[in-house]
Amino acid sequence: MHATIYHNPACGTSRNTLAILRHAGFEPTVIEYLKNPPDRDTLLRLFADAGLTARQAARQKGTPFEELGLGDPAVSDEAIVDAMLVHPILINRPFVVTERGTRLCRPSEVVLEIIPPLATPFTKEDGEIIGV
């Protein structure tokens, strides 16, 4: 089974998700989306496959989300995607794609929905144990 993770190494949730994938035996394709942002079609596919709107997939904390006026409910998903293309930090993370589905893995254990069961428990950076 193959996995792709849209990863930000500065994000603890993203690091934990990547570590869970590796613990499960994957060596995923890692796309550091801040360095190599996805194009519009890829973003729209990720959101659709995860069952999310662009607004639901937008990261607000630590981003220019409010400064850009994106918090206004009248702002369209198309406008949010346009902003994500210019400011990839607005894309929430991490997105993971496997043959079993696509998920925005917040919290990181959401990735367990799209990979085989863990053979052994995994300890997250904060000491929380999952997969037991």
Rank of each mutant, 00 (worst) to 15 (best):
T123W: 09
P73Y: 09
F122V: 10
G69R: 12
E66M: 15
R59W: 11
G101F: 05
A58S: 10
E125S: 15
P107F: 07
L44R: 15
L70F: 10
P64D: 07
L68H: 08
E99A: 11
I80P: 01
P88H: 05
P64A: 14
A50N: 06
T102D: 07
L112A: 04
I89Q: 08
E113S: 14
R93L: 06
G51R: 07
E99W: 02
G69H: 10
R103N: 02
K124R: 15
D82E: 13
R59T: 12
F65W: 12
F47R: 01
A83H: 02
I114K: 01
G71Q: 07
F47E: 05
A79T: 13
E66P: 02
F122L: 09
L90R: 03
R100S: 13
G69N: 13
F65N: 05
K124H: 10
P73Q: 09
G71H: 12
L52M: 14
K124F: 01
T53S: 15
A74W: 11
M84H: 02
D49S: 13
S108Y: 02
I115V: 13
T123C: 10
S108K: 00
T120V: 10
F65I: 12
L43G: 03
L43W: 05
A119D: 12
L52A: 05
G69Q: 13
R103A: 03
E113C: 09
A58V: 08
H87K: 10
R40C: 14
P107Y: 08
D39K: 04
V111W: 03
G62H: 10
P64V: 14
L68I: 13
A54Q: 00
P94T: 06
R59F: 08
E113N: 15
D82W: 06
D49L: 04
P88Y: 04
I91F: 04
T42E: 15
N92R: 01
V75R: 05
P117D: 11
S108N: 06
E113F: 04
I89M: 09
P88I: 02
S76K: 04
L118K: 03
I89W: 07
N92F: 03
K61P: 01
P116Y: 11
L44A: 14
D49V: 02
R93G: 00
G51F: 10
E113I: 05
